[in-house]
């Protein structure tokens, strides 16, 4: 008799894999994006089962919220008229892609099957809470945290430098 935990696990695991397959088989990018959203939400459910509340919330806010909106924007900007995927393809793209994915899949299956992982110890009950994550982030990982903020600033500068329209070249850009 499966426990409630197991039932919930299988539910989320099945939805994650099923929507993943839907995502890569749809022709229209919009449908793929929505299927991707379902995958992300089911993964958040799996994180909750592992007592990682904070990670689950972050997963929903950042991935399902921000990143998916970004993807939708790109789709809208690139395919605003048709909603269709791009038609230009590299020759032999599909067979080569399938072959490479199969090799990667086989390799990782072999890697995990040949490894004896043992049973993980039960994490302490407060692991993965917002308080705990905050403590770790601002104590042990304070320097990486600061460097990451500089890195984000660099990305911002880059976006402005490369995309901002300047007075002298506005005459070239104007249509």
């Amino acid at each position: 008799m499966p426990t409630l935990n197991q039932i919930i696990f299988w539910f989320f695991a099945f939805t994650a894999v099923a929507s993943g397959i839907v995502m890569i088989t749809r022709q229209k990018p919009m449908q793929s994006a929505i299927a991707f959203l379902v995958t992300l939400l089911s993964l958040a459910g799996l994180y909750l089962l592992l007592d990682a509340q904070f990670v689950a919330i972050l997963q929903i806010i950042i991935y399902a919220g921000a990143i998916l909106v970004l993807i939708l924007f790109v789709i809208m900007l690139l395919h605003s008229h048709s909603g269709e995927g791009s038609t230009s393809k590299v020759p032999l793209q599909r067979p080569v892609a399938i072959l490479l994915s199969l090799i990667l899949f086989g390799g990782s299956i072999y890697l995990f099957a040949s490894t004896d992982f043992g049973v993980a110890s039960t994490p302490p009950s407060d692991m993965g809470t917002a308080q705990n994550v905050g403590h770790t982030l601002f104590d042990k990982f304070i320097l990486p945290f600061e460097v990451a903020s500089i890195l984000l600033l660099t990305g911002l500068i880059g976006a402005v430098v490369l995309a901002k329209r300047e007075r002298e070249d506005s005459s070239n850009d104007a249509h």
Binding site: P144, V147, A148, I150, L151, T154, G155, I157, G158, V161, L162
Partner: peptide, 12 residues
């Protein structure tokens, strides 16, 4: 992080 902080300005 160092590698990214080194590389991203170089891309730009």
């Amino acid at each position: 992080l160092g590698l990214e902080t080194l590389s991203i300005p170089l891309y730009i």
